[in-house]
Simulated assay, not measured.
Amino acid sequence: MKKAVAYMEQRKEKLMAILQLPPPEFEPETFHLLRVEIKKIRAVMVLVGKLNPNCLPSKKYRHPLRQVFKSAGVIREKQIESAFIQSVLPEDDGATLLLLQLEETETAQKAEFRQLINDNVLHRIGQLAHKLSACLAQLDKKRVKEWMQRKSHKLLQKIKHLQEKAADWHEVRKQLKVHNYLTACTGFTTAPWQPEKIAELQELLGKWHDCHAMIKSFQQQTKAKQTPFVKEALHRLIRHLTSQQQTIVQQITTLAASFGAEPQ
């Protein structure tokens, strides 16, 4: 599995390069790229956990990666919310106050994130990557290919019978990401996988998830002590997102129903 080992080494190099950037160079996109690299490593852990579970590194090596991912995720959520607010709300008192609150939260979270990234955490993540590379080197190509084929077949069946449930959609979204990352990792493709449709579905599920997450966040914020201006701004955002989400739901439902259909 030389290709998989090389893929893991590349993930390690990119992740460590991001984590060692000085704070001023951390842009919104940096947190996104950081989480993508961690997702790719977690996909590798799924593969190792299924085919070589005794080799999977212990929680003490995996925990730091989880901490970094979670911390960066909170920051990323606030950045997405801020960008959305600026794109749909007028520059009134409610929007201004809400953006200030988000900025304060993001600043506090960034401070926690910087404290989290220390030499010990970097060392543990480096050890984790090294151990995963060793695990990948032990995998049998035939077993990996067979597992990938079974996994993709099950996922395709889930897509064909996708129900309008948040838990189902979120799970399919995560599994699609894992499938894509492991395809790049192993080089094994599966048929009859429809890459263009899959890419479109993944994009729609991503948009749906952003709406879903922001609605929950803004609903939670309405329960906190807020000025009338901020509460009204939050309710406007929720109404806008709900309408947008309904459109995306229709698009996903239509696209999912088309999987497995004979090409025209």
Results as ranks from 00 to 15, higher is better:
65 L>R: 09
215 I>S: 03
48 V>K: 10
35 R>P: 08
179 H>F: 12
124 R>D: 08
62 R>I: 05
230 V>D: 04
256 A>D: 03
162 L>H: 09
61 Y>K: 07
187 G>H: 02
97 L>Y: 11
181 Y>E: 10
168 D>M: 03
194 Q>E: 14
185 C>R: 06
222 T>W: 03
32 H>T: 14
46 V>K: 13
154 K>L: 10
144 V>E: 04
96 T>D: 09
59 K>H: 12
9 E>R: 13
106 E>L: 02
125 I>C: 04
15 L>D: 07
172 V>P: 05
231 K>S: 13
249 V>G: 00
51 L>S: 02
221 Q>M: 15
11 R>A: 09
218 F>W: 15
234 L>T: 04
253 T>W: 03
250 Q>L: 12
255 L>C: 09
230 V>E: 05
223 K>S: 04
128 L>W: 10
164 E>P: 01
75 I>T: 05
219 Q>K: 15
91 E>D: 14
194 Q>D: 10
9 E>Y: 07
14 K>P: 00
221 Q>F: 11
215 I>N: 03
45 M>P: 00
105 T>M: 14
67 Q>M: 13
48 V>Y: 09
45 M>H: 01
262 E>L: 11
159 I>F: 10
79 Q>F: 09
83 A>T: 10
138 Q>C: 04
262 E>M: 09
188 F>Q: 08
86 Q>E: 12
122 L>N: 04
136 L>G: 09
142 K>M: 09
157 Q>M: 11
67 Q>E: 12
135 C>I: 02
101 Q>N: 13
